[in-house]
Amino acid sequence: MLSSRTIEFWSWRLFAVALVVSLGVSWWDYPQRWHTPGYWLRNLIMYWLYWSPRLAGVFMLTGFVSRAWNTRGGRRLLAMLMSVGVMIGLWSSLVEPQQLQVRETVLTGLPEGAEPVRLAVISDVHWGLFFRDSQLQGLVDKLNTLEVDAVLVAGDWTHEPPLDLKTGLAPLASIRHPVYGVMGNHDVEAPGPPLTEALREALKANGVQMLEGRMVTWKGWELVGLDDQWGGSPGPQVAALWPNERGHDRPQPSRRIVLAHQPDTLALLPEQGAFLAIAGHTHGGQIWIPGLTPWWLRNTNSEQSWWNGLYSTRVGPVFVTPGVGTVGLPARLAVPPMIDVIELR
Rank of each mutant, 00 (worst) to 15 (best):
D124R: 08
R118A: 13
V86F: 00
R72Q: 11
V121M: 13
L78S: 07
Q101G: 14
L78K: 06
S92E: 08
N70P: 00
R76P: 02
R76I: 00
E96P: 00
V84Q: 05
L90G: 03
R72D: 02
R103W: 02
T145L: 12
L143M: 08
Q135Y: 07
R132V: 12
L129Y: 09
H126L: 08
W69E: 01
T71Q: 09
L81C: 15
A114G: 05
Q99T: 07
L100F: 09
N70C: 11
G73S: 08
E112W: 04
N144Q: 05
L119I: 15
V95I: 15
S123Q: 11
R76D: 00
L90Y: 00
V84L: 15
G89D: 01
V86G: 03
F131A: 01
L129V: 05
S123V: 07
G138E: 15
T145V: 00
L81D: 03
A79R: 08
F130G: 03
L119A: 03
G138Q: 14
G73K: 10
D133A: 14
W91R: 03
A114L: 09
S134N: 14
R76Y: 00
Q99Y: 01
E115I: 00
A120H: 09
Q135D: 12
V117W: 02
R75V: 04
W69M: 06
A114T: 12
L94H: 01
E104Y: 14
D124Y: 12
V117R: 07
D141T: 08
H126K: 10
P116D: 08
R132T: 11
N70H: 06
L143D: 11
V140K: 11
R76V: 00
